[in-house]
Structures are given as structure tokens and as C-alpha cells.
Design a protein around this nucleic acid. Structure first.
Lengths: 143, 143
DNA sequence: CACGATACTTAGCCTAGCTAATGAGCATGG
DNA sequence: CCATGCTCATTAGCTAGGCTAAGTATCGTG
């Protein structure tokens, strides 16, 4: 089944696989936990250190107003802090707080538990395939 | 970078890749077009012929009320028809209409255009990796 | 120093998820 | 043969997460 594929048929297959996979992973979220989007934004902030809303929106591939909402939720919970930019009064610096980093570590593990168990059942080759696919998807998403 | 991966680190990587990829593909949608979820439901109906709402919800990995909403949108546009079940008065049979099939073919192509172009730029090996990954993701989603 | 550009937010809209509750129909055990 | 309990679909009501358009503040430059 993994013979030669046209880009068109692959596009359809990939789209369907990803929408179902996303839904399945979403369902595995404990109530009261951080959502997909929130966790992703927090991850980016940890990885990149500190970012402006615009930068974070670009990394996360959403529009700035969407990021305002997501960051708002994280700020409510004290996981992210907004500080004014030192020289440019228009800009804001976003960074994970100490609590954000702590909560992140805990939630991240709990959040991934279901998925990690599933992945653990795969063969090493399959995991390798997924790892390479993830890289490619990131690249395509950036295009 | 695609060396040995633990399930945990892969889970994180995969989750991030997929959320960004989904957002990117979503952005490529022309306004007024069918949404991700609508198209996916319509695809399943075409593939499986006719299904009850419960069955369709299971295939799509959503809860029944969510499917009611999605089907409602499709029915408004005349793309899907609800017909009563012949023997069981509780159930309903969902099927794509002729117009549904026609619109599907057109929208599907337009919808995938951006993605197909991106995929076309990849190497055959990369496309093969994605095809195999899609298969694995489908399997994991079904778990 | 006025005016255009940039950064963020606010306002308002829609879709997509969910759970809980409702109503209709089936099936079965007494 | 019907009461009771189950299943199916839908409705109601909520939240999150997207978007665009518009508003506000600040910057930078001519």
C-alpha cells in the first residue's frame, strides 16, 4: 500500500489521517488540563525563551488575535507573563513563568501519556517513520 | 535527527508537528468552501456508502452531537440526505446526494490544491514516508 | 511634528468540540 | 401485552479556537 503515490491522493489520505488522529488525541485530554493549543504555545515559549505575540503567532501558525486569546488563558493561570518591551512601547515580551515551567513539565507528561503508550506499541521502524514524517510536516507547515 | 526516539519525545514532536500542520492546511481553505470536518464526513459517506449518525461519528472519531451539527450543515447545502431507517424508527440513514458527490469532487480538488503542490515538491522518498506515516496514524487513531 | 506604518488588543463572528438532558422507538420479562 | 429499561438521535448550553475588521498606542521618518 505504500507504493508510488501521486501528490493528490497522498494529500487526501494525509488530511484524513491527521484530522482523525488530532481528534483522537484531543479526546485523551483530562478535563481541566491545558488544551492542545495552550500546550503548544507554552512549548514554543520554553523552546524559544521569550517572544513577542507576533513572533509566537508566526511560530504557531495562527493570526495575532488568536494568539492574544491563547496567551490570555495562560496568563490567567499564571503560566505566562507579559512584560513591556524595553525600548519599543508597542511590543510586549511573553515568557513562561516559573510556575509555567513547572506546570508544563507535569501536564506535558500526563498529556502525552496516552499517546506515548500507543507509540510504544509500534515497532522501532514505525516510530522512525513517524519521526521523519513529523520533520517533513513541520517543513511543509512552514511553507 | 531521525535516530532512536523514545515514545515520549516522539509524542511531543508529533503533536507539535501535527497541530501546526493542521493550522497551516486550514488557512489554505478558500472562504465559503467546505470545512475540514465537513469534507471529512462527506468523504466517509462516499467511502462507506450510507451510514447512521452513530456510525459516522465513530468513523470520524467525534461524539454523536458533534456529528449532528456537521451533518446539519451538509444537509442545509443539499449535499447529504437523511432518510428514515426501514425497520428501526430510531435510526436514520445518511447518504451523499448526487449534488453532494458532484460538489465533493470539485471542492476536494480545490481544497487539496495547496497541499498537493507542497507535496509535489518533496522527494518520492519523503512522500512515501508520509504515506506510511498516514497509515500508522490512522491505526493509532483507531486505538 | 504630522502622518504613515507597525504592534497589540478588542469586538464580533463562526466552527467544532464536549456533556447533559430530552424524546422517540425498540425489546424484553413478567 | 405492557411496563420498564435501553438505544438512537437530537437539542440545549457551554468552551475553545479560529478568523477579519476595527481601534489604540507607539514608533519612525520626512
Amino acid at each position: 500500500m505504500t507504493t508510488e503515490r501521486t501528490a493528490e491522493s497522498l494529500a487526501k489520505t494525509l488530511r484524513d489521517a491527521i484530522i482523525r488522529f488530532s481528534r483522537r488525541v484531543r479526546q485523551a485530554r483530562p478535563v481541566g488540563d491545558l488544551t492542545f493549543s495552550q500546550l503548544s504555545a507554552l512549548t514554543s515559549l520554553q523552546l524559544h525563551g521569550a517572544l513577542t505575540p507576533r513572533e509566537l503567532a508566526d511560530v504557531e501558525r495562527v493570526q495575532p488575535p488568536t494568539m492574544t486569546k491563547i496567551v490570555g488563558k495562560l496568563e490567567e493561570r499564571g503560566l505566562v507573563a507579559r512584560t513591556p518591551h524595553p525600548t519599543d512601547g508597542r511590543q510586549v515580551i511573553l515568557a513562561a513563568t516559573d510556575e509555567g515551567r513547572a506546570v508544563y513539565a507535569v501536564h506535558e507528561d500526563a498529556r502525552n501519556e496516552w499517546l506515548a503508550v500507543q507509540l510504544d506499541r509500534l515497532t522501532p521502524e514505525e516510530r522512525d517513520t513517524l519521526a521523519r514524517a513529523a520533520e517533513i510536516l513541520q517543513r511543509v507547515a512552514r511553507a
